[in-house]
Design a protein around this nucleic acid. Structure first.
Lengths: 218, 218
DNA sequence: ATGAACATCAGTGTATACAAAGACTGCTGA
DNA sequence: TCAGCAGTCTTTGTATACACTGATGTTCAT
Protein backbone atom coordinates (compact mmCIF):
# COMPACT_ATOMS: atom_id res chain seq x y z
CA UNK A 1 0.00 0.00 0.00
CA UNK A 2 1.30 3.45 -0.89
CA UNK A 3 2.32 5.66 2.01
CA UNK A 4 0.05 8.48 0.85
CA UNK A 5 -2.89 6.08 0.72
CA UNK A 6 -2.09 4.78 4.16
CA UNK A 7 -1.87 8.30 5.60
CA UNK A 8 -5.09 9.31 3.89
CA UNK A 9 -6.99 6.28 5.15
CA UNK A 10 -5.67 6.72 8.70
CA UNK A 11 -6.47 10.43 8.90
CA UNK A 12 -9.86 10.00 7.29
CA UNK A 13 -10.70 7.28 9.74
CA UNK A 14 -9.50 9.34 12.67
CA UNK A 15 -11.68 12.25 11.62
CA UNK A 16 -14.78 10.22 10.76
CA UNK A 17 -14.55 8.29 14.03
CA UNK A 18 -14.16 11.53 15.97
CA UNK A 19 -10.73 10.58 17.31
CA UNK A 20 -9.55 13.86 15.79
CA UNK A 21 -11.97 16.49 17.03
CA UNK A 22 -13.13 19.41 14.88
CA UNK A 23 -10.74 22.31 15.20
CA UNK A 24 -7.70 20.09 15.63
CA UNK A 25 -4.76 21.45 13.67
CA UNK A 26 -2.95 18.79 11.66
CA UNK A 27 0.70 19.87 11.69
CA UNK A 28 2.66 18.15 8.96
CA UNK A 29 5.69 16.99 10.89
CA UNK A 30 3.60 15.89 13.85
CA UNK A 31 1.22 13.80 11.76
CA UNK A 32 3.91 12.42 9.48
CA UNK A 33 5.81 11.14 12.51
CA UNK A 34 2.67 9.75 14.11
CA UNK A 35 1.70 7.88 10.95
CA UNK A 36 5.21 6.80 10.04
CA UNK A 37 5.37 8.43 6.62
CA UNK A 38 7.32 11.39 5.34
CA UNK A 39 5.85 14.82 4.76
CA UNK A 40 5.42 14.40 1.01
CA UNK A 41 2.78 11.65 1.02
CA UNK A 42 1.22 13.20 4.11
CA UNK A 43 0.65 16.46 2.26
CA UNK A 44 -1.03 14.55 -0.53
CA UNK A 45 -3.33 12.97 2.04
CA UNK A 46 -4.15 16.36 3.55
CA UNK A 47 -4.90 17.69 0.09
CA UNK A 48 -7.40 14.92 -0.55
CA UNK A 49 -9.05 15.46 2.82
CA UNK A 50 -9.34 19.18 2.16
CA UNK A 51 -10.84 18.54 -1.27
CA UNK A 52 -13.46 16.35 0.42
CA UNK A 53 -14.20 19.01 3.01
CA UNK A 54 -13.06 16.99 6.02
CA UNK A 55 -10.29 19.51 6.63
CA UNK A 56 -9.85 23.11 5.64
CA UNK A 57 -6.77 25.27 5.18
CA UNK A 58 -6.70 27.46 8.27
CA UNK A 59 -4.01 30.01 9.04
CA UNK A 60 -1.28 27.59 10.01
CA UNK A 61 -1.72 24.11 8.60
CA UNK A 62 -5.03 22.43 7.93
CA UNK A 63 -7.66 22.03 10.62
CA UNK A 64 -10.40 19.43 10.99
CA UNK A 65 -13.69 20.99 9.89
CA UNK A 66 -16.53 21.38 12.30
CA UNK A 67 -19.99 19.89 11.82
CA UNK A 68 -22.54 22.05 13.55
CA UNK A 69 -26.29 21.49 13.74
CA UNK A 70 -26.83 23.97 10.90
CA UNK A 71 -24.30 22.06 8.82
CA UNK A 72 -26.32 18.91 9.32
CA UNK A 73 -29.42 20.67 8.03
CA UNK A 74 -27.52 21.88 4.98
CA UNK A 75 -26.04 18.45 4.43
CA UNK A 76 -29.42 16.76 4.49
CA UNK A 77 -30.92 19.41 2.25
CA UNK A 78 -28.38 18.51 -0.42
CA UNK A 79 -28.68 14.82 0.33
CA UNK A 80 -32.43 14.95 -0.14
CA UNK A 81 -31.95 16.59 -3.52
CA UNK A 82 -29.31 14.17 -4.77
CA UNK A 83 -30.61 10.90 -3.36
CA UNK A 84 -34.19 11.77 -4.22
CA UNK A 85 -33.18 12.30 -7.82
CA UNK A 86 -31.04 9.16 -7.76
CA UNK A 87 -33.90 7.02 -6.49
CA UNK A 88 -36.17 8.41 -9.19
CA UNK A 89 -33.59 7.68 -11.88
CA UNK A 90 -33.01 4.20 -10.52
CA UNK A 91 -36.75 3.54 -10.73
CA UNK A 92 -36.70 4.65 -14.36
CA UNK A 93 -33.56 2.86 -15.45
CA UNK A 94 -32.83 0.15 -12.92
CA UNK A 95 -33.32 -3.58 -13.13
CA UNK A 96 -36.47 -4.59 -11.23
CA UNK A 97 -35.17 -8.02 -10.18
CA UNK A 98 -32.12 -6.56 -8.47
CA UNK A 99 -34.15 -4.24 -6.29
CA UNK A 100 -36.84 -6.83 -5.64
CA UNK A 101 -34.09 -9.08 -4.29
CA UNK A 102 -32.75 -6.29 -2.08
CA UNK A 103 -36.24 -5.51 -0.83
CA UNK A 104 -36.63 -9.11 0.26
CA UNK A 105 -33.38 -8.99 2.20
CA UNK A 106 -34.26 -5.68 3.81
CA UNK A 107 -37.58 -7.03 5.02
CA UNK A 108 -35.66 -9.72 6.87
CA UNK A 109 -33.13 -7.20 8.23
CA UNK A 110 -34.56 -7.06 11.79
CA UNK A 111 -33.15 -10.54 12.30
CA UNK A 112 -29.66 -9.17 11.65
CA UNK A 113 -30.20 -6.16 13.86
CA UNK A 114 -31.29 -8.27 16.80
CA UNK A 115 -28.50 -10.75 16.16
CA UNK A 116 -25.40 -11.14 18.27
CA UNK A 117 -23.11 -8.83 16.25
CA UNK A 118 -22.90 -5.53 18.14
CA UNK A 119 -21.36 -3.74 15.14
CA UNK A 120 -24.30 -4.74 12.89
CA UNK A 121 -21.82 -5.41 10.14
CA UNK A 122 -24.20 -7.55 8.13
CA UNK A 123 -26.91 -4.90 8.26
CA UNK A 124 -24.70 -2.03 7.19
CA UNK A 125 -23.27 -4.17 4.43
CA UNK A 126 -26.79 -4.76 3.12
CA UNK A 127 -27.61 -1.05 3.17
CA UNK A 128 -24.32 -0.44 1.38
CA UNK A 129 -25.39 -2.90 -1.31
CA UNK A 130 -28.58 -0.89 -1.84
CA UNK A 131 -26.52 2.29 -2.26
CA UNK A 132 -24.24 0.54 -4.72
CA UNK A 133 -27.19 -0.83 -6.68
CA UNK A 134 -28.69 2.65 -6.96
CA UNK A 135 -25.34 4.11 -8.01
CA UNK A 136 -25.09 1.53 -10.75
CA UNK A 137 -28.71 1.89 -11.88
CA UNK A 138 -28.66 5.65 -12.40
CA UNK A 139 -25.77 5.37 -14.87
CA UNK A 140 -24.69 8.93 -14.17
CA UNK A 141 -21.11 9.13 -13.01
CA UNK A 142 -21.35 12.80 -12.01
CA UNK A 143 -24.36 12.22 -9.78
CA UNK A 144 -22.78 9.08 -8.33
CA UNK A 145 -19.60 11.02 -7.59
CA UNK A 146 -21.55 13.81 -5.90
CA UNK A 147 -23.30 11.28 -3.67
CA UNK A 148 -20.05 9.53 -2.83
CA UNK A 149 -18.53 12.80 -1.68
CA UNK A 150 -21.54 13.34 0.57
CA UNK A 151 -21.44 9.92 2.18
CA UNK A 152 -18.13 10.64 3.88
CA UNK A 153 -19.76 13.39 5.91
CA UNK A 154 -22.79 11.22 6.61
CA UNK A 155 -20.71 8.47 8.12
CA UNK A 156 -19.17 11.11 10.34
CA UNK A 157 -22.60 12.18 11.50
CA UNK A 158 -23.82 8.64 11.98
CA UNK A 159 -21.16 8.26 14.64
CA UNK A 160 -22.92 10.97 16.59
CA UNK A 161 -26.27 9.21 16.63
CA UNK A 162 -26.88 6.17 18.77
CA UNK A 163 -27.81 3.41 16.34
CA UNK A 164 -30.36 1.78 18.61
CA UNK A 165 -32.13 -1.32 17.41
CA UNK A 166 -35.52 0.37 17.18
CA UNK A 167 -34.30 3.09 14.81
CA UNK A 168 -32.35 0.57 12.74
CA UNK A 169 -35.39 -1.60 12.30
CA UNK A 170 -37.45 1.39 11.22
CA UNK A 171 -34.71 2.48 8.84
CA UNK A 172 -34.60 -1.00 7.32
CA UNK A 173 -38.32 -0.80 6.66
CA UNK A 174 -37.86 2.59 5.01
CA UNK A 175 -35.06 1.21 2.86
CA UNK A 176 -37.30 -1.69 1.90
CA UNK A 177 -39.96 0.81 0.81
CA UNK A 178 -37.40 2.59 -1.39
CA UNK A 179 -36.26 -0.67 -2.95
CA UNK A 180 -39.87 -1.68 -3.55
CA UNK A 181 -40.67 1.61 -5.31
CA UNK A 182 -37.60 1.29 -7.51
CA UNK A 183 -38.43 -2.32 -8.33
CA UNK A 184 -41.94 -1.20 -9.25
CA UNK A 185 -40.45 1.36 -11.64
CA UNK A 186 -42.22 4.23 -9.90
CA UNK A 187 -39.86 7.26 -9.89
CA UNK A 188 -42.05 9.66 -7.93
CA UNK A 189 -42.77 7.07 -5.25
CA UNK A 190 -39.09 6.17 -5.03
CA UNK A 191 -38.19 9.82 -4.58
CA UNK A 192 -40.91 10.32 -1.97
CA UNK A 193 -39.86 7.22 -0.03
CA UNK A 194 -36.28 8.46 -0.06
CA UNK A 195 -37.26 11.90 1.20
CA UNK A 196 -39.34 10.37 4.00
CA UNK A 197 -36.44 8.14 5.01
CA UNK A 198 -33.96 11.03 5.06
CA UNK A 199 -36.25 13.22 7.12
CA UNK A 200 -36.71 10.49 9.71
CA UNK A 201 -32.96 9.91 9.82
CA UNK A 202 -32.36 13.61 10.28
CA UNK A 203 -34.90 13.83 13.09
CA UNK A 204 -33.26 10.90 14.82
CA UNK A 205 -29.77 12.36 14.48
CA UNK A 206 -30.87 15.74 15.78
CA UNK A 207 -32.75 14.21 18.69
CA UNK A 208 -29.72 12.13 19.68
CA UNK A 209 -27.40 15.05 19.27
CA UNK A 210 -29.61 17.23 21.46
CA UNK A 211 -29.68 14.61 24.23
CA UNK A 212 -25.92 14.14 23.96
CA UNK A 213 -25.47 17.87 24.34
CA UNK A 214 -27.75 17.90 27.37
CA UNK A 215 -25.91 14.96 28.86
CA UNK A 216 -22.55 16.65 28.55
CA UNK A 217 -23.49 20.16 29.57
CA UNK A 218 -26.71 19.91 31.63
CA UNK B 1 1.87 33.36 -6.07
CA UNK B 2 2.69 29.86 -4.92
CA UNK B 3 4.18 27.55 -7.49
CA UNK B 4 1.51 24.89 -6.91
CA UNK B 5 -1.21 27.48 -7.46
CA UNK B 6 0.46 28.68 -10.63
CA UNK B 7 0.77 25.14 -11.98
CA UNK B 8 -2.83 24.37 -11.07
CA UNK B 9 -4.18 27.52 -12.73
CA UNK B 10 -2.11 26.95 -15.86
CA UNK B 11 -3.09 23.30 -16.27
CA UNK B 12 -6.72 23.96 -15.48
CA UNK B 13 -6.79 26.72 -18.06
CA UNK B 14 -5.08 24.54 -20.64
CA UNK B 15 -7.64 21.78 -20.12
CA UNK B 16 -10.71 24.02 -20.00
CA UNK B 17 -9.62 25.89 -23.12
CA UNK B 18 -8.99 22.61 -24.92
CA UNK B 19 -5.30 23.32 -25.43
CA UNK B 20 -4.72 19.99 -23.68
CA UNK B 21 -6.95 17.51 -25.47
CA UNK B 22 -8.77 14.70 -23.66
CA UNK B 23 -6.57 11.63 -23.42
CA UNK B 24 -3.36 13.65 -23.13
CA UNK B 25 -1.07 12.12 -20.53
CA UNK B 26 0.41 14.66 -18.17
CA UNK B 27 3.86 13.33 -17.34
CA UNK B 28 5.26 14.94 -14.21
CA UNK B 29 8.73 15.85 -15.41
CA UNK B 30 7.47 17.05 -18.76
CA UNK B 31 4.83 19.35 -17.27
CA UNK B 32 7.00 20.57 -14.45
CA UNK B 33 9.63 21.67 -16.96
CA UNK B 34 7.04 23.26 -19.22
CA UNK B 35 5.49 25.25 -16.37
CA UNK B 36 8.78 26.09 -14.67
CA UNK B 37 8.02 24.50 -11.31
CA UNK B 38 9.42 21.42 -9.62
CA UNK B 39 7.62 18.12 -9.40
CA UNK B 40 6.36 18.60 -5.85
CA UNK B 41 3.98 21.53 -6.47
CA UNK B 42 3.08 20.05 -9.84
CA UNK B 43 1.89 16.87 -8.18
CA UNK B 44 -0.26 18.92 -5.85
CA UNK B 45 -1.80 20.63 -8.87
CA UNK B 46 -2.47 17.28 -10.54
CA UNK B 47 -4.10 16.06 -7.34
CA UNK B 48 -6.49 18.99 -7.30
CA UNK B 49 -7.33 18.53 -10.96
CA UNK B 50 -8.01 14.84 -10.40
CA UNK B 51 -10.24 15.62 -7.42
CA UNK B 52 -12.24 17.95 -9.65
CA UNK B 53 -12.52 15.32 -12.35
CA UNK B 54 -10.59 17.22 -15.01
CA UNK B 55 -7.95 14.53 -14.97
CA UNK B 56 -7.98 10.91 -13.93
CA UNK B 57 -5.23 8.56 -12.76
CA UNK B 58 -4.56 6.35 -15.75
CA UNK B 59 -1.96 3.60 -15.82
CA UNK B 60 1.10 5.79 -16.20
CA UNK B 61 0.56 9.33 -14.92
CA UNK B 62 -2.70 11.24 -15.04
CA UNK B 63 -4.63 11.78 -18.25
CA UNK B 64 -7.02 14.55 -19.24
CA UNK B 65 -10.57 13.24 -18.94
CA UNK B 66 -12.81 12.99 -21.95
CA UNK B 67 -16.17 14.72 -22.28
CA UNK B 68 -18.36 12.73 -24.61
CA UNK B 69 -21.93 13.49 -25.64
CA UNK B 70 -23.25 11.07 -23.00
CA UNK B 71 -21.16 12.85 -20.39
CA UNK B 72 -22.84 16.10 -21.33
CA UNK B 73 -26.24 14.53 -20.80
CA UNK B 74 -25.18 13.24 -17.38
CA UNK B 75 -23.66 16.56 -16.49
CA UNK B 76 -26.82 18.47 -17.33
CA UNK B 77 -28.94 15.92 -15.50
CA UNK B 78 -27.05 16.69 -12.32
CA UNK B 79 -26.95 20.38 -13.10
CA UNK B 80 -30.72 20.45 -13.51
CA UNK B 81 -31.12 18.83 -10.11
CA UNK B 82 -28.72 21.10 -8.29
CA UNK B 83 -29.46 24.42 -9.93
CA UNK B 84 -33.19 23.77 -9.92
CA UNK B 85 -33.05 23.21 -6.19
CA UNK B 86 -30.78 26.21 -5.73
CA UNK B 87 -33.16 28.50 -7.61
CA UNK B 88 -36.05 27.26 -5.51
CA UNK B 89 -34.13 27.86 -2.29
CA UNK B 90 -33.07 31.29 -3.46
CA UNK B 91 -36.70 32.15 -4.11
CA UNK B 92 -37.54 31.06 -0.58
CA UNK B 93 -34.66 32.68 1.22
CA UNK B 94 -33.21 35.35 -1.06
CA UNK B 95 -33.55 39.09 -0.94
CA UNK B 96 -36.11 40.26 -3.51
CA UNK B 97 -34.45 43.61 -4.20
CA UNK B 98 -31.16 41.96 -5.19
CA UNK B 99 -32.75 39.75 -7.79
CA UNK B 100 -35.09 42.47 -9.02
CA UNK B 101 -32.00 44.56 -9.69
CA UNK B 102 -30.33 41.69 -11.54
CA UNK B 103 -33.48 41.09 -13.55
CA UNK B 104 -33.41 44.72 -14.70
CA UNK B 105 -29.82 44.41 -15.82
CA UNK B 106 -30.48 41.13 -17.63
CA UNK B 107 -33.37 42.66 -19.56
CA UNK B 108 -30.92 45.22 -20.90
CA UNK B 109 -28.29 42.57 -21.67
CA UNK B 110 -28.89 42.47 -25.46
CA UNK B 111 -27.21 45.88 -25.62
CA UNK B 112 -24.04 44.35 -24.19
CA UNK B 113 -24.22 41.34 -26.48
CA UNK B 114 -24.49 43.50 -29.59
CA UNK B 115 -21.80 45.85 -28.30
CA UNK B 116 -18.28 46.02 -29.64
CA UNK B 117 -16.64 43.60 -27.18
CA UNK B 118 -16.17 40.29 -29.00
CA UNK B 119 -15.45 38.43 -25.74
CA UNK B 120 -18.78 39.61 -24.23
CA UNK B 121 -16.96 40.15 -20.97
CA UNK B 122 -19.61 42.45 -19.54
CA UNK B 123 -22.36 39.94 -20.28
CA UNK B 124 -20.61 36.95 -18.75
CA UNK B 125 -19.73 39.04 -15.72
CA UNK B 126 -23.43 39.81 -15.26
CA UNK B 127 -24.41 36.15 -15.52
CA UNK B 128 -21.66 35.38 -13.03
CA UNK B 129 -23.18 37.90 -10.64
CA UNK B 130 -26.50 36.06 -10.86
CA UNK B 131 -24.76 32.78 -10.01
CA UNK B 132 -23.03 34.43 -7.09
CA UNK B 133 -26.25 35.95 -5.83
CA UNK B 134 -27.98 32.57 -5.93
CA UNK B 135 -25.02 30.94 -4.14
CA UNK B 136 -25.28 33.54 -1.40
CA UNK B 137 -29.06 33.37 -1.14
CA UNK B 138 -29.33 29.61 -0.65
CA UNK B 139 -27.08 29.74 2.42
CA UNK B 140 -26.08 26.12 1.98
CA UNK B 141 -22.34 25.70 1.66
CA UNK B 142 -22.55 22.04 0.61
CA UNK B 143 -24.92 22.79 -2.24
CA UNK B 144 -22.88 25.82 -3.27
CA UNK B 145 -19.74 23.70 -3.28
CA UNK B 146 -21.39 21.01 -5.39
CA UNK B 147 -22.44 23.62 -7.95
CA UNK B 148 -18.99 25.18 -8.02
CA UNK B 149 -17.43 21.83 -8.80
CA UNK B 150 -19.87 21.43 -11.67
CA UNK B 151 -19.21 24.83 -13.20
CA UNK B 152 -15.64 23.89 -14.09
CA UNK B 153 -16.91 21.23 -16.45
CA UNK B 154 -19.56 23.57 -17.82
CA UNK B 155 -17.01 26.18 -18.80
CA UNK B 156 -15.16 23.43 -20.59
CA UNK B 157 -18.31 22.56 -22.52
CA UNK B 158 -19.17 26.16 -23.27
CA UNK B 159 -15.96 26.35 -25.24
CA UNK B 160 -17.41 23.76 -27.56
CA UNK B 161 -20.54 25.72 -28.36
CA UNK B 162 -20.49 28.79 -30.56
CA UNK B 163 -21.82 31.60 -28.41
CA UNK B 164 -23.69 33.37 -31.20
CA UNK B 165 -25.52 36.59 -30.43
CA UNK B 166 -28.95 35.06 -30.96
CA UNK B 167 -28.46 32.32 -28.41
CA UNK B 168 -26.91 34.73 -25.92
CA UNK B 169 -29.86 37.09 -26.18
CA UNK B 170 -32.26 34.22 -25.62
CA UNK B 171 -30.19 32.98 -22.67
CA UNK B 172 -30.26 36.46 -21.16
CA UNK B 173 -34.04 36.48 -21.37
CA UNK B 174 -34.14 33.06 -19.68
CA UNK B 175 -31.85 34.30 -16.93
CA UNK B 176 -34.08 37.32 -16.49
CA UNK B 177 -37.05 34.99 -16.05
CA UNK B 178 -35.17 33.08 -13.35
CA UNK B 179 -34.24 36.28 -11.54
CA UNK B 180 -37.83 37.47 -11.77
CA UNK B 181 -39.17 34.25 -10.27
CA UNK B 182 -36.67 34.42 -7.43
CA UNK B 183 -37.48 38.09 -6.79
CA UNK B 184 -41.16 37.16 -6.72
CA UNK B 185 -40.40 34.53 -4.07
CA UNK B 186 -41.88 31.74 -6.17
CA UNK B 187 -39.76 28.60 -5.67
CA UNK B 188 -41.55 26.31 -8.10
CA UNK B 189 -41.51 28.92 -10.85
CA UNK B 190 -37.83 29.62 -10.22
CA UNK B 191 -37.06 25.91 -10.49
CA UNK B 192 -39.14 25.56 -13.64
CA UNK B 193 -37.50 28.59 -15.25
CA UNK B 194 -34.07 27.14 -14.42
CA UNK B 195 -34.94 23.77 -15.89
CA UNK B 196 -36.23 25.39 -19.07
CA UNK B 197 -33.07 27.44 -19.39
CA UNK B 198 -30.81 24.44 -18.88
CA UNK B 199 -32.67 22.35 -21.43
CA UNK B 200 -32.38 25.09 -24.04
CA UNK B 201 -28.67 25.46 -23.27
CA UNK B 202 -28.19 21.73 -23.61
CA UNK B 203 -30.03 21.63 -26.94
CA UNK B 204 -27.88 24.47 -28.22
CA UNK B 205 -24.65 22.80 -27.11
CA UNK B 206 -25.60 19.48 -28.65
CA UNK B 207 -26.69 21.11 -31.90
CA UNK B 208 -23.41 23.00 -32.16
CA UNK B 209 -21.41 19.94 -31.27
CA UNK B 210 -23.21 17.90 -33.90
CA UNK B 211 -22.54 20.50 -36.60
CA UNK B 212 -18.90 20.76 -35.54
CA UNK B 213 -18.62 17.02 -35.84
CA UNK B 214 -20.22 17.09 -39.27
CA UNK B 215 -17.94 19.93 -40.33
CA UNK B 216 -14.82 18.05 -39.34
CA UNK B 217 -15.74 14.59 -40.56
CA UNK B 218 -18.47 15.00 -43.17
C1' DA C 1 11.51 -17.78 -36.30
C1' DT C 2 9.51 -17.58 -31.95
C1' DG C 3 9.18 -17.47 -27.12
C1' DA C 4 11.02 -16.63 -22.73
C1' DA C 5 14.11 -14.49 -19.59
C1' DC C 6 16.83 -10.76 -18.39
C1' DA C 7 18.53 -6.19 -18.59
C1' DT C 8 17.63 -1.49 -19.17
C1' DC C 9 15.06 2.50 -18.71
C1' DA C 10 11.46 5.72 -18.23
C1' DG C 11 8.54 7.46 -14.82
C1' DT C 12 6.16 7.60 -10.54
C1' DG C 13 6.45 7.27 -5.23
C1' DT C 14 9.04 8.73 -1.18
C1' DA C 15 12.35 10.98 1.70
C1' DT C 16 15.00 14.79 2.96
C1' DA C 17 17.33 19.09 2.63
C1' DC C 18 16.73 23.89 1.91
C1' DA C 19 14.13 28.33 1.51
C1' DA C 20 10.71 31.47 2.82
C1' DA C 21 6.99 33.17 5.38
C1' DG C 22 4.67 34.10 9.48
C1' DA C 23 3.90 33.96 14.44
C1' DC C 24 5.48 34.36 19.06
C1' DT C 25 8.58 36.27 22.52
C1' DG C 26 11.24 39.40 24.68
C1' DC C 27 13.09 43.84 24.79
C1' DT C 28 12.95 48.77 24.64
C1' DG C 29 11.02 53.16 24.92
C1' DA C 30 7.49 56.19 26.14
C1' DT D 1 2.06 49.40 31.94
C1' DC D 2 1.49 49.09 27.25
C1' DA D 3 2.64 49.62 22.46
C1' DG D 4 5.85 48.82 18.93
C1' DC D 5 9.60 46.44 16.93
C1' DA D 6 13.09 43.24 16.08
C1' DG D 7 14.88 38.71 16.37
C1' DT D 8 14.16 34.04 16.58
C1' DC D 9 11.92 30.01 15.83
C1' DT D 10 8.39 27.09 14.23
C1' DT D 11 5.94 25.54 10.24
C1' DT D 12 4.83 25.44 5.60
C1' DG D 13 6.39 25.64 0.53
C1' DT D 14 9.76 24.00 -2.86
C1' DA D 15 13.51 21.51 -4.91
C1' DT D 16 16.09 17.50 -5.61
C1' DA D 17 18.00 13.06 -4.81
C1' DC D 18 16.92 8.30 -4.23
C1' DA D 19 14.02 3.96 -4.53
C1' DC D 20 10.98 1.08 -6.70
C1' DT D 21 7.90 -0.56 -10.13
C1' DG D 22 6.29 -1.62 -14.50
C1' DA D 23 7.16 -1.62 -19.33
C1' DT D 24 9.94 -2.30 -23.30
C1' DG D 25 13.36 -4.15 -25.94
C1' DT D 26 17.09 -7.38 -26.73
C1' DT D 27 19.33 -11.60 -26.67
C1' DC D 28 19.75 -16.41 -26.36
C1' DA D 29 18.05 -20.98 -26.65
C1' DT D 30 15.09 -24.16 -28.79
Amino acid sequence: MRASEKAYAALRDDIVEWRLAPGTVLAEVEQSERLGVSRTPLREALGRLTAEGLTTPGGRGVVVTDISLEDIDELFELRETLEGKAAALAASRGDAATFEQLRGELVRAPEMINGNDPTRHEYYELVGRLDTAIDAAISNSYLAQAMRSLRVHLVRIRRLAADDAARLAAAAAEHAAIAEAIAAGNPRLAEAATIVHLHRSLSHVKATHASHHKEHHG
